[in-house]
Design a protein around this nucleic acid. Structure first.
Lengths: 99, 99
DNA sequence: GACATATTTGCACAAATAAACAAATATAGG
DNA sequence: CCTATATTTGTTTATTTGTGCAAATATGTC
């Protein structure tokens, strides 16, 4: 567990860079309210346990935030934070090179 | 090989979501001119063959463009294109949900 | 052609990853 | 306490991935 900025960004991009996880993110994109895992796992054709693990990865990487609600866990996107990080990378890539 | 927009974006993010590949991208970020693989592979501590493979992935995903120059291949970033895709995702994530 | 340099490819291997299913856990509601 | 529902965890399997090294290829130079 290094506290390396490059590694952390790579981990974030890797979390987003898997088809089913990205599908979950897209699904959450369109949701005003937080959704539970059972509902979310329908958007990608995987087992509930698989969705659970994917959501865990997304939570660990800060893409998603989880909240307990009764016997379910509801998930919502960390919209501004993730958007900010993606734009920061875009800016860096597009920015003027120094050498 | 599906022509699925979600899959293609996931592939792009996966290409960026590996430490050494992201390091190569950062290295190219700071370069005004295109660089060859020997030079680039110094930024990450890997074998030249490994860098070659990473650069191939980045090329296939359109992150980088390659040009032959004598016996070397020089690489440069597809800055505007990648930045555009990252911003598009950021916009989608931050955009107002429909339901 | 001989040689040097840059890059790719073949191969082997270890580690990481995604998936499915069953079992365990948590919690709401009778 | 019992049951139903939601989620996580353990286990196994198959696949992918990143890596290094040696060999092959490509190309410039002498």
């Amino acid at each position: 567990m290094e506290t390396n900025a490059t590694q952390e960004l790579a981990d974030l991009l890797k979390a987003l860079g898997e088809y089913n996880r990205l599908s979950l993110v897209y699904e959450l994109c369109g949701c005003k309210q937080a959704r539970n895992a059972m509902c979310l796992c329908e958007c990608c054709s995987v087992d509930a346990s698989v969705a659970s693990r994917h959501l865990k990865v997304l939570t660990q990487e800060g893409v998603v935030r989880m909240e307990k609600k009764g016997r379910e866990r509801i998930y919502s996107l960390n919209r501004t934070d993730i958007a900010r990080q993606l734009r920061a990378l875009a800016d860096q890539i597009e920015g003027e090179p120094s050498l």
